[in-house]
Amino acid sequence: MTAPAYNFAYLDEQTKRMIRRAILKAIAIPGYQVPFASREMPMPYGWGTGGVQVTASILGPDDTLKVIDQGSDDTTNAVSIRKFFTKTANVRTTTATIEATVIQTRHRVPETPLSEEQVLVYQVPIPEPLRFLEPRETETRRMHALSEYGLMHVKLYEDIARHGHIATAYAYPVQVDDRYVMDPSPIPKFDNPKLDDCPALQLFGAGREKRIYAIPPYTRVVSLDFEDHPFEAYRHDAACELCGASDSFLDEVITDDDGNRMFVCSDTDYCEQRRALGHGPYNAAPADPQGSSHTGASPTEPA
């Protein structure tokens, strides 16, 4: 390839400075949505333009990047963003959570515990948790400013009234550092507890909405709930059919037209690491981890 026609990590240095200033402000005020001058990126909105800009601004030449999409390293979104940074920044990439220094994620938090050395960058479609209850941005900003968060509980109330329990399963609202109510991006609520007191820095970028917010390391993050309907992390009542993990978040995969299905870890790296260590599915035919997925697909009984 000839000399690149763009700067390291695509964005020019002034843009990165602007974004870093927004990030610093976001870290200083945990959970507060900082407006920033989001740029057009060479990918459509909804593909992680916010996350990519944050990643581009914090990435250095010696960083190792991991990109996941719904926990998976090998989906289109994850592969393209990884290739994008390989090409524009020439950084090392990895699929192993422990090797990465910067992890850009769409809709999942890795199962492997994060460390102080790592930064987790979330792609955020809609940063405003109050949006669907109060469409006026002027009003929601005022509500944030004055900590008027009663409305957030109205949403949870509605859930219980309609479904008998808090049916919000993803983008479950949290309160950060006992102050700002924040949308943790559409991660499953299973991941919410991982946000609390996390050693890694967590950054959230919303490109279309032009907002950046952050959770500094070791910050208290509480999922909102009612006294008599406490927050519960949900996962399918099953074990991964590839690695046997009973503590990871599971994807339900339809395997054929007859309604057969299997549950597998949504975090592909976690699943692979476990299989490399010799973990296998419960009650599976020995030494045939691939084939077992189909034949052994008598699905676990749903709850």
């Binding site: 209850l133 009663g150 409305l151 509980h153 109205v154 109330y157 009234a161 309609r162 008599d228």
Partner: peptide, 24 residues
């Protein structure tokens, strides 16, 4: 009123705004 929110939610909003956190 909040037209998209149930009657119970509409009445309960003020209670939740002043800190009521018990659904029942």
């Amino acid at each position: 009123l909040r037209m998209g929110v149930s009657a119970g939610g509409n009445v309960g909003e003020r209670l939740m705004a002043v800190g009521a956190r018990n659904y029942q």
